[in-house]
Design a binder for these strands. Structure first.
Length: 887
RNA sequence: GGGCGUUUAGCUCAGCUGGGAGAGCGCUACCCUUACAAGGUAGAUGUCGGGGGUUCAAACCCCUCAACGCCCACCA
């Protein structure tokens, strides 16, 4: 027979998700509102790329931040979560380039810059918000009115203002310098965007002649023979006895027969290769430095697309791979190739394009970061900003303590164009925030702007400022810059500590002298079950939207939160999501149980004198959980918070408190019914409040039933520790009761009693408080273990013979079943337990007998050990009694 | 080459400033008991990577070795 229940048996996650997100939006629940803390709490969302599709990394980002934001909001902080999207220069440009090519067979050059940029904007308007809609699916409670796009007017102003400021300070300069050139993008990229990969290549040993000493040959080792066209020296270590005498003489480069000096330079490693290094200052970072030290000429042998130019006549127009083969052929023909052997070496690849990076000289804009990096380091050293977990500060330091000038110009069209202007008439060059009409020098009007755009991270670095309106005063006022800057916590992944965190620190401090945030919580990287990175090529990616569809957003959020602590990897096993989906459903069904009794429940708790011991207990447990959850959330230990509430809901609340409530709710005592219904409702309120930051949808749904739709959960006060609710005595007694109940069930199971078989139980304990508790709870024992009758006596009393039995440290349990059970099996069971207890007792006994322990250990520990020893002794005595009852 | 991290039950992981080895999933047995079979009850499972050391006491602190992973630097 099933009780009629208005609620469905399983929780409808999709329905709740759609319903509540709209309600929250309509009620402006995500807007900052001053609360009892009288403080603000600001989080800046790492802006996803407009080209992005939601992946598990975003899902984790969203979950950890949203849980934090909801938690702080409920704690009474004036809470602001600022969302936004990033224009993602390279990636967006190439998406649109490909699209234009596919649809019209035109390149961006065919369209021209203005038209192409217009097309990108068009694309952005149409598709760039997809990821935002996906974030909403997960319950992201950001204030969308603050949503900012990195190319919006304010960020653009910020970029210009900052650029001009630093340009005028002399921190931004233009220089011919060797940069990482990406031939497929035909743009420079920064050091941080280069990824080194192990590549199988060859080590070539080449023969160079020495002009002054006919007959002497130098053997030069190289992995790139095709670059000999750019060689302007041969270098040896000045301390190398083998070649000392050759320094100052002249080497003749094979094929092109150029004469170059033989120089001595400390950089050359005598052990590596042959000890002779060909120097190509135009296409190698180290060689560039050697060239500077020795005033060597620089020869550029590459075109922008990575093919060879006329400086390398034999391989002109070829790509590096073909060129190498051709050069190798010629070398063999000229008998200059001495040796060629396999060699695995790291080669730089473009992070986005995955193309081999060619070091090349070109004119680029650089930002001197030395001082800014210093300040950024100091802010963490002196605690103005703190990393959670702390270990990540090492990564941060290692980058910022060894700062290199940052190449900020990109040869792209999509992005913030560099605000530098040139006069065609007098060659003047200056930076300006507003587009100038005339030359600052000659007043001429034939001007043009630098065609390059800025590195995407340049605008991202200003994100904490520009999202709050900087540098526009009206916008700053409207957005509350003063109130919300600096931000409270930044949540992000460790992969962008250099790219983003370090740059925001440098730039934010440069402008405001304050670190842009107090805490940086670095979350894990989501990997597959086996710990592999999720990637398209492996096909092991998990789509968060699929998970939401299948298990619900709450279950996915709980899974991600439960996996987020101070770990650096989060290996996601889909089975875990199923487990937490079950948890969400468990909560739903617990609520279904109390739902019919809600009408009986009073608004306020009854006076304490009317509380049942079980009420006392559950409130004390709930209180403990609230305390731990607050502590965990404050330290970004989502994993701990989740495990606390999970444990409480499943074990304490559902398995015991609800089970213990059935007797009352199904009974005739109307007053007791009202009290229990009130208690259950009270507990449920607290539970959904505690859970709401992690699983917002189901909790809001339940809240609507609890409160009859009169209020929204999202705006409720979080549960804090309440010293008045603590009750250690009851918790101890209840734990003993649970132990006894489980003991009875254990015995039942060991003698294969069916659940329907009623039993008689004899309990023996010398603890009078416990005896009373057990007596008061006798009806409950009946419900929980189908006990028909029983007695509670002191241990001095005689035991029933040949019973199925069990002992705890405080109580002996006998179920008289003489003749129905296998005596030997029972005896064996008891003996096994004795052995186990004996060995445990021995451990503590050894401590007690150890004078050093008694002397040195803290008194609490000694007391604890003594109590344990007593417990084991009592249990052993009981087990002995049981054994003798079989005689 | 420099640095960081990981190694605990079959799997994924907790275990905080040292004080009787934990959770979830999986597994075994029994059970459709009136919230829930996406469930209940009971149960089994560990040389805490190896070796030293400090300590009355080590999964935890120190040294060392090993395996795996990540970051940085480096196209001889």
């Amino acid at each position: 027979m099933e009780i009629e229940n208005a609620l469905p048996k399983t929780f409808d996650s999709e329905g709740a998700e759609n319903k509540w997100y709209d309600v929250w939006l309509k009620n402006q629940c995500f807007k900052p509102r001053s609360g009892k803390q009288n403080k603000t709490f600001t989080v800046l969302m790492p802006p996803p790329n407009v080209t992005g599709k939601l992946h598990m990394g975003h899902a984790l980002d969203a979950t950890t931040q949203d849980a934090l934001i909801r938690y702080k909001r409920m704690k009474g902080f004036e809470t602001l979560w600022i969302p936004g999207t990033d224009h993602a220069g390279i990636s967006t440009q190439s998406v649109v380039e490909k699209l234009v090519w596919k649809q019209e067979k035109k390149t961006r050059h065919d369209l021209g810059r203005d038209e192409f940029v217009r097309r990108v904007w068009e694309w952005k308007e149409q598709y760039g918000n997809e990821i935002v809609n996906q974030q909403m699916k997960m319950g992201v409670s950001a204030d969308w009115d603050y949503a900012t796009f990195t190319l919006d007017e304010i960020p653009n102003k910020a970029v210009k203002k900052f650029f001009v400021m630093l340009f005028n300070e002399g921190l931004i300069y233009q220089s011919d310098y060797i940069v990482n050139w990406d031939p497929s993008l035909q743009s420079a990229i920064s050091d941080a965007e280069v990824e080194h990969k192990e590549v199988k290549g060859f080590f070539y040993h080449l023969k160079y002649l020495v002009k002054e000493e006919p007959g002497t040959e130098l053997i030069v080792a190289t992995t790139r023979p095709e670059t000999i066209y750019g060689d302007t020296a041969v270098a040896v270590n000045p301390n190398d006895e083998r070649f000392k005498d050759l320094i100052g003489k002249t080497a003749i480069i094979p094929i092109c027969n150029r004469e170059v000096p033989i120089i001595g330079d400390e950089h050359v490693d005598m052990e590596k290769g042959t000890g002779c290094l060909k120097v190509t200052p135009g296409h190698d970072f180290n060689d560039f430095e050697i060239g500077k030290r020795n005033s060597l000429a620089i020869i550029n042998i590459l075109n922008k697309d990575g093919t060879f130019n006329t400086n390398a006549p034999e391989i002109k127009g070829m790509k590096p791979k073909d060129a190498r083969a051709e050069v190798e052929r010629i070398l063999i023909e000229l008998d200059k190739l001495v040796e060629k052997k396999e060699h695995i070496h790291p080669v730089g690849h473009g992070e986005r394009s995955d193309e081999i990076i060619e070091p090349m000289i070109s004119k680029q804009w650089f930002l001197k970061t030395t001082e800014m990096a210093d300040d950024a380091v100091r802010a963490v050293e002196n605690g103005e900003m703190t990393f959670y977990p702390k270990g990540w500060e090492n990564t941060y330091f290692s980058w910022l303590r060894n700062p290199k000038d940052w190449c900020i110009s990109r040869q792209l069209w999509w992005g913030h164009q560099i605000p530098v202007y040139y006069c065609k008439n007098c060659n003047a060059k200056w930076a300006a925030e507003e587009t100038p009409d005339e030359c600052i020098e000659c007043k001429g009007s034939d001007l043009f702007q630098d065609p390059d755009v800025l590195d995407t991270w340049f605008s991202s670095g200003l994100w904490p400022l520009s999202t709050l309106g900087w540098p526009d005063e009206n916008a700053m006022k409207a957005k509350g810059f003063k109130k919300f800057y600096p931000n409270s916590t930044l949540v992000t992944g460790f992969d962008i500590i250099f790219f983003w965190v370090a740059r925001m620190m440098m730039m934010g401090m440069k402008v405001t002298n304050k670190a842009p945030f107090r805490d940086v919580y670095i979350h894990a990287i989501v990997r597959d079950k086996q710990g592999r990175k999720m990637s398209k090529s492996l096909g092991n990616g998990i789509d968060p939207l699929e998970l939401i569809k299948q298990y619900g957003a709450d279950a996915m959020r709980f899974t991600l939160a439960a996996g987020s602590g101070y770990n650096r990897d989060l290996n996601l096993d889909p089975e875990r999501i199923e487990g937490y989906r079950n948890f969400v459903n468990k909560l739903w069904n617990a609520f279904r149980f109390i739902h019919p009794y809600l009408e009986k429940a009073k608004e306020d708790l009854p006076t304490k004198s009317e509380w049942h011991l079980h009420d006392n207990w559950i409130l004390a447990e709930l209180n403990t959980v609230a305390k731990k959850m607050n502590e965990s959330m404050d330290l970004y230990r989502y994993d701990e918070a989740c495990s606390e509430i999970y444990q409480f809901v499943y074990e304490k609340f559902c398995s015991w408190y609800i089970e213990l409530s059935k007797n009352i709710l199904y009974g005739q005592d109307e007053k007791a019914k009202v009290i229990r219904a009130t208690m259950l409702k009270f507990c449920f309120r607290k539970i959904v409040i505690l859970l709401h930051p992690i699983t917002p949808f189901i909790t809001e749904e339940i809240w609507a039933h609890l409160e009859d739709g009169k209020s929204l959960l999202i705006g409720q006060e979080y549960v804090e520790f309440d010293p008045a609710l603590g009750n250690a005595d009851v918790q101890i007694l209840m734990n003993k009761f649970i132990e006894v109940t489980s003991g009875v069930r254990n015995i039942r199971s060991s003698v294969n009693l069916k659940p329907k078989d009623e039993i008689d139980v004899r309990l023996f304990t010398d603890d009078p408080k416990l005896a009373k508790f057990l007596y008061d709870s006798r009806h409950f024992l009946k419900d929980l273990a189908n006990v028909k009758s029983g007695t509670i006596r002191k241990k001095a009393s005689s035991r029933p013979k040949k019973s199925a039995s069990l002992a705890t440290s405080h109580t002996e349990i006998f179920i008289p079943l003489e003749g129905l059970i296998d005596i030997n099996e029972q005896i064996n069971r008891i003996k096994k337990d004795m052995e186990k207890t004996q060995s445990e007792y021995k451990k503590v006994e050894a401590k007690i007998n150890n004078a050093n322990f008694m002397q040195n250990a803290p008194t609490e520990v000694v007391t604890e050990v003594r109590e344990k020893a007593q417990g084991f002794m009592d249990k052993l005595a009981s087990l002995n009694e049981i054994l003798s009852s079989f005689q």
